[in-house]
Structures are given as C-alpha cells and as structure tokens.
Design a protein around this nucleic acid. Sequence first.
DNA 1: TCTGGGGTCCTAGGACCC
DNA 2: TCTGGGGTCCTAGGACCC
Length: 392
Amino acid sequence: MDSFFVEVERLDRPELRGRPVAVGGVGRRGVIASASYEARAVGVRSAQPTGIAMRLCPNLVVVPPAHNRYGEMSVRVFDIFRSVTPLVEGLSLDEAFLDVSGLRRHLVSPVEIGELVRKTIKSVLGLPASVGIASTKFVAKLASEAAKPDGLKLVRAESQQEFLHALPVEALWGVGPATLAGLQKLGIVSVGDLALVPEATLSRTLGPNQGSHLLALAAGIDPRPVTPESGAKSISVEETYSRDLIGRDLIEAALLAHSQQLAMRLRRAGLGARTVSLKVRFADFTTVTRARTMPHAISQSRDLYRVALDLLSQVAGDDPVRLLGLGGSSFEETASSGQMSIDSDDAWHRLGEAVAQVQERFGVKSVAPARLLGRDSADAGVREDDRPDDES
DNA sequence: TCTGGGGTCCTAGGACCC
DNA sequence: TCTGGGGTCCTAGGACCC
C-alpha cells in the first residue's frame, strides 16, 4: 500500500487530499510514521522527528495515528489478497507477498492478477496500492518499490540481473545503516559491485551467514517460499514519555499501566506468555532489556506486573527513564478466560477477569488501580490519548 | 520541536544435560 | 586422571523492517 496511514486518513478527511500530510506523533518526542508524496517531495521521511519534518515542510499537516482504524482497513485489504490466492504472507499491516504461480493454469498472467488486485483495492476501499511481480520474493518487493506510487512493475527473469545490479546496495532487504557502512568500507556502492566481491572478503566483514546471503541476493537467488501466516511470536507494549519518569513511584505506576494493556492484548489473542521482557531506555538513550522465562504461562495483569517489578529491580539505579516497554513471548494458548493465576488467589483472579472485561469494552483507562489515579496522568502511566480499542 | 511503536531474526555466551 | 562432543534452553544486545 502507498502511504497507507496517510491514505486511510484521507479517506476519512477528504480535505487532506493534495496537501502535504504526515501521520505521526505530535508531542515533544513525536516522529513521523507515514508521509504523503507531497511531503516526501520536500524531504519528509518516516522515522524522522516531527520537529525536523515541520522545519522541512512548515505547512505539513501532522495527524496523530489511529492504529485501530488502520488495523480495520488492513483486514479488508488482506481479504482482497486472499480472494486471489490463499498463499498470502503478510509482512506488515499494509504489505504482503502473494504466490500466484499456481494460477498460471487458469491462463491469467501475473500482470493481469496484479492489475486486478490494484483495481479492486481502489474501487472497494478507495486506496492506492502498488504491485511488484517477479519470480522471487525479494525481487518482487524491490519491484513494488520501483512501482510506487500507484503503479505496477514486472521484472522478468531475463532482465532480473540488470534490474538488480543497477540498484544501490542499501536497496537490498536486510542492508541497513550498519551493514551499509561495512560494505562502503569495501568500496561497494551498487548491487552490481556487491556481486563481484569474493565471498571470503564479504564474510570477513559481515560474518559468514550474512555474507553468503547477500551474495545470493545480488545474484537474484532467494529460495524462500511464500509462507502464509504463522501466529505472533511476541506481543509488547512500550511508550516513550513526553517527560522522563523520575523516581520509582512513577516508574512502577507506568509499569502497572503497561501490565494492564499487555494483559488485555494477550487475552484478546487467547495467549499466555512464559517469557516476560522488560525494556528500559534512560535519558541518555542507553537501553537495557531484562527477561524471565517461567515454567508456566501467565496472562493476568497482576502476574505480569509482579514479574515486571522483579525485572525492574535488576535494572539498578534512579536514573530518569525515557521509555518503558513490557512484552510477552514463548506463548501458550490459554483456554480463553479460564487462565489460572500464579497463586490461586480466587478473589484476585475474579477481580482481574472483571477488570479485563470492562477494559475490553470501554478501554484500558476505564478501570485502574487507585495508585494510577490522581496523578499528573499526562506523563505517568495512564495516557491521555488512550482511547477505547473498540467503537463501543 | 533530536531521535516512536510494533515486530522479526541473528549472534554469542552461559547453564545444563547426556 | 585438568577436560570431548552434541544438544537444548535461556538471556542480552543489536540489526533490520514497516
């Protein structure tokens, strides 16, 4: 999908069409998540601090993200994908691989299928999408980038080499800033340059696995099949506070809020987590993580909070905290609401169930432990913009 | 107005087991 | 009797992606 978040906002707010628009954080520490092509034209990029984006583009309209809305539209986009083939591998909310090799029997060409998908998304949802077609996943992805905005590109097997070698190395999937720096030291600028480097040279800089992997990509070799959906491997909640949290009280209150949100998301997914991870970023941006794996999965906020506090105690000090994150992984499926607590404190268990149900309907903010109330809630724990997760 | 939030995968080291 | 080989699980950090 092209500028997915921005285009969904434009569906709901037509006055945003034709103007430079970005979806992103509008607070002191906001960054851009998605930018319209009008904004990109003057240098606005995703992951850019909103302040810098505003400097580059003073008339930029910045809209705070409405993730639930994007999630709804994503479901509809994926329904269209799956109307073409069941072999759909989602990559994110707005991007997927479709294996259409089996459809050749029906005498439809990949280009016809691609155009059908684009037309359907446009007519049913009113959103622009781009399609890349190739015989491997990563070339198809690169082709879709080349097709943007609102286009389609086919890279035939015969011209694949030529297409690839002209690209800058950082266009390759998996080459980010760190890898790029290593490649530049070797004088590699284009994918064509990369293809000529001996594997031993590359492996010395990047390690054997990444070295051989990148060489294969440069040669257009990518045996990875399209693998339809496998469930999430981790679920996490994190927040960068507009002002650093100072003092254990504030940090613990924020962690309690995270525990509640995480519990709600686990419950919705019908999952319990055997591993709980805490992430702490300090004012100087150093980030530490601590994790614990338990013999049994947990999903209740009180249990999550208890483990979170324990992990927090391993991160010594009273340094100001910029970001707190809490996540669960090593999932086990729970029998929906019958999950047992760590201790079998029945009253607590039932209370947790009741709170979870109210929060499901009215949002996390609707019920909170007393210690989360009456604080300066803008920065600690409960977020002001915390809307209910459904439309009730 | 300087650095989000949600993920996946990889690496390296250590504990532990047979 | 001073040190093997194979394997699993876990932790912490980092790179990368959208």
